[in-house]
């Protein structure tokens, strides 16, 4: 695990939060031969924590284990000190917004949110409408949820979660399908909830999304903890990893000679299959600034500049290394 900056939780490990409300200790979960989580230990406290990882990293399984939907094969999960699989009362303190698009058939948004409110014993009769209003769904509250778009379904599920006024809110890819305006609105909402002292855990496979709302980030890879720390530390670690950049120009030989002189360049090779230079760099931002300047000064025409390994998967792989 790469422990990166920030956090001063127990044993000063950034994977553990101060005042933890959700504790995951040595948790393993497997489905038949497939290991979804492997000896994972971390904790979450008040504020927004981002759970980052590529598809299949184990984010959804971790969230389901945290809420008790899935039992763990090994280790323990505690919500405010209680086991969510054994103590159903703890469900009254938390809410989950799953990634699944599945919604109950035949119900309107208002009926679904009201049903949740009834199950949680919410006494304020106006709470369902207030929750729908908070996610801007009051206008369509009497429309059937199974006819909604993905983004609208997600917002309805967020409303169903908020109506219970949870102390721990677990959101699995809540921004999926939301348009840019809705995204901003939801991000603000989650930040407000975190600022009000609730534990908000948001998963995503998009770093930019997570760092806009979470101060603290936990990165999963192949069911293991890959990194944990402040969002800036995670961003820096990702930016500073070695990257390969393909550059095609009208004079590769001269460009290669000039590139070698740059401090941000660790190596240059000629790739005949791509008909261009492959630059290895650990300072991608500096290279992005220096390369056009260098080309202009040397009167070299750049035909193509493309990162070869800029997928999130490669970023995560680099962190795990």
């Amino acid at each position: 695990m790469t422990a990166i900056g920030g956090g001063s939780g127990i044993v000063n490990d950034p994977a553990f939060a101060d005042d933890a409300t959700v504790e995951v200790a040595d948790v393993s979960v497997w489905f038949g031969p497939k290991v979804a989580l492997s000896e994972l230990s971390c904790s979450f406290g008040p504020g927004v924590t981002g759970l980052l990882g590529p598809n299949g990293a184990g984010k959804t399984t971790l969230m389901r284990a945290m809420t008790g939907l899935v039992g763990v094969n090994q280790g323990t999960v505690r919500i405010e000190g209680r086991d969510p699989r054994r103590d159903r009362q703890v469900h009254g303190r938390m809410a989950l917004v799953p990634e699944d698009e599945a919604v109950p058939a035949g119900l309107t948004a208002r009926q679904l949110v009201r049903y949740t409110a009834d199950l949680f014993g919410v006494t304020d009769p106006e709470a369902p409408d207030k929750a729908l209003h908070s996610v801007a769904m009051l206008d369509v509250a009497d429309r059937r949820v199974d006819g909604f778009s993905k983004g609208m379904r997600q917002r309805t599920k967020v409303a169903a979660a908020l109506v219970t006024d949870p102390q721990v809110l677990v959101l699995d890819e809540p921004l999926n399908g939301a348009d840019p305006v809705q995204r901003l609105h939801l991000i603000d909402l989650f930040k407000q909830l975190g600022a009000s002292g609730r534990t908000v855990i948001v998963s995503s496979h998009v770093l930019n999304e997570v760092e806009r709302m979470a101060e603290r980030v936990i990165v999963l890879m192949h069911g293991r903890l890959a990194a944990a720390g402040g969002r800036h530390a995670i961003r820096d670690a990702m930016d500073d990893r070695p990257r390969h950049v393909l550059v095609r120009s009208d004079d590769g030989r001269r460009l290669a000679a000039a590139l070698i002189a740059l401090q941000s360049v660790a190596g240059v090779t000629f790739d005949s299959s791509r008909d261009g230079l492959v630059i290895q760099t650990v300072q991608a931002r500096e290279l992005a600034i220096a390369l056009p300047r260098l080309a202009r000064d040397a009167s070299i025409r750049l035909l193509e500049v493309r990162a070869l390994d800029d997928s999130l998967e490669s970023l995560f792989r680099e962190l795990v290394r």
């Binding site: 809420t67 009254g92 949740t116």
Partner: peptide, 12 residues
């Protein structure tokens, strides 16, 4: 269908 959690994940 994956919608039973709306009921199960409650203090009921």
């Amino acid at each position: 269908a994956g919608t039973f959690h709306f009921t199960w994940l409650s203090p009921t």
